[in-house]
Structure formats: structure tokens, C-alpha cells
Amino acid sequence: MMNYSTLEIERSGSTATVWMNRPELHNALNETLIAELTSAFRCLNEEAAVRVIVLAGRGKSFSAGADLDWMRRAAQYSEAQNLDDARKLAAMLKGIYRSKKPVIARIHGAAMAGGTGLTAVCDIAVGTADARFALTEVRLGLIPATIGPYVADAIGMRQSRRYFLSAERIDAATALRLGLLHELVDADALDARVAEIAAELARGGPHALTAAKELLADLRQSTPLDDTLLDDTAHTIAATRVSDEAREGLAAFFAKRPPNWH
């Protein structure tokens, strides 16, 4: 794992926490933070000892969105330069969303614009009552393009129509109702709850967790009326049942012992 200037990587057991570490700027996104998040998730996905990844922010905020200096520079870029810049942001978001390992978002304070996007790309999002979100891009003459697919996936198209256009603030209770957050906890219980969820995730088979995420991607593209999908799921479970991991999991269950990955 390389050294980072905008991140801290903290390990506890099988959990790795990726701390965005620009507290004086509320962990605002710039080209360096984007590149380092891309690198960190790529590396952690290759570490067998890491079973769960937590994304968190140091200081008062999770992430307040785009860094103002970065936005100011981008305003002077050509379209080609902006395309290159946007593709790097898109690659970072995709890398987190498609992580082979479960990702938990630890949310407190501001999670605005890009911070809302970072929340949406994580598999599970746990936040505190002071968490606040918004898709503020239209007020700057922009649109939430790169984060849009993930936010719409998280809260649905009908709600997205409202919040993409209104740019209004979304408080923690509303985020919970929309599905952007899975749980709300007291601030002093946030780390303990994230650790509890990470421990539950780590009980799953490593390959099974990855395969479950791939299954979810397939299910988004089809419906139970699609016979091809139903046949594919039958083939998938048949292949899974004869895997070494599944045999170990079932053997451990019947022997009333932990499986070898636990």
C-alpha cells in the first residue's frame, strides 16, 4: 500500500477504513483525492486479509463535495481537459461501487454533491443525525452527471427527479426515508455500529459476497419475467454449491464450527 497525502488507511482485524483526510477543507474532492481513492480501493480489493472496507471522513464532515480550487481550475479547462478530468472521477466512483468487497459509508456532517455520490456508491450507509446531503450542481449551472447513476440507483428515479432539479438540502431523516442512508445512529455510537456491521459482513464467504454483488447487478437489468435470468440463476447456484468455499461453509454449519474464512 502506497503512502497517501489525502488519505489515511486504518486496519482493524479484517476491516480497512479509508479515511479521507482533508479536514480543513471538509474532505472536498480534488484531483489528488480522487486519484488516491481510486488507488486505495484498487489495492484493498487485492488484499486477501481485508474483508470489508469502510469509507469515512476526518474532521467535521464526510465530504463537502468539490474543492473550490479544483472547480476554479476546471472552469478554465478545454472540453477535452474536462473530459479527462471527469473520466477520472467516474473511474473512482465506479471502482468503489464495483468493489469486490462490501463497502460501508460512515457518514457524519456534510455529504454534499460529490459527497452524496460517495454515499450512494457504497453498499451500506450509516449516518448520524447531523448528516446532510444535496445535489447542488444545477445552482452552479452544472448537473450531477457522474454521480447521477448511483444516486438514482439509491433513491429511485421519482425522487431523483425532485432532488436533481431542486438542489434542496436533504436532512438525515429524509435521507433515511429515501434509502440513501440505511441507518441513523447517535454520534457516539457511529463507530461501534459500523464495526458491528463490518463484523456481520465478514461472516460471509469472500467469494460469495463478491458473487452476491454481481447477482445484484444482473437483477437490475432484468425481471422475474425473464426466463433467461431465471435459468442463469439456476446455473449460478449449481456452480456455487460445488465450490470449495460453499463446501467449507456447509461443512462448518453442520459441524457447528466457524468456517475457515471467519
Rank of each mutant, 00 (worst) to 15 (best):
M1W: 06
Y4E: 02
S5R: 08
R11K: 11
S14W: 00
V18I: 12
L25I: 00
H26V: 03
A28T: 07
T32M: 05
L33E: 07
A35K: 00
E36A: 00
T38E: 14
S39Y: 04
A40K: 00
C43V: 09
N45C: 04
A48C: 04
V52K: 00
A66D: 05
D67Y: 13
W70T: 02
W70N: 07
M71V: 00
R72N: 14
R73M: 11
L83H: 09
D84V: 13
D84F: 02
D85N: 11
R87A: 09
L89I: 10
K94E: 15
I96G: 02
K101Y: 00
V103D: 08
I104T: 11
I104A: 01
H108I: 03
H108S: 03
A111I: 01
A111Q: 07
M112C: 08
A113V: 04
G115E: 10
G115M: 02
A120Q: 05
A125M: 04
G127M: 08
T128M: 03
D130T: 04
T136I: 10
V138A: 13
G141V: 06
L142W: 14
T146K: 01
G156Q: 01
R158V: 12
S160K: 12
S160G: 10
Y163W: 08
F164L: 10
S166L: 12
S166W: 01
S166Y: 02
E168H: 12
E168A: 14
E168M: 13
R169N: 13
I170R: 13
D171R: 11
A173S: 12
T174R: 15
L176P: 01
L178R: 05
D186G: 12
A187S: 13
A187V: 02
L190P: 03
V194M: 03
E200I: 08
E200K: 07
A202Y: 07
A212Y: 04
L216I: 09
L219G: 09
R220C: 13
Q221T: 11
P224V: 09
P224L: 04
D227H: 06
L230S: 10
D232N: 14
T233M: 15
I237W: 13
A238Q: 10
A239L: 11
A239E: 13
T240M: 05
G249F: 06
A251C: 06
A252V: 07
P258W: 04
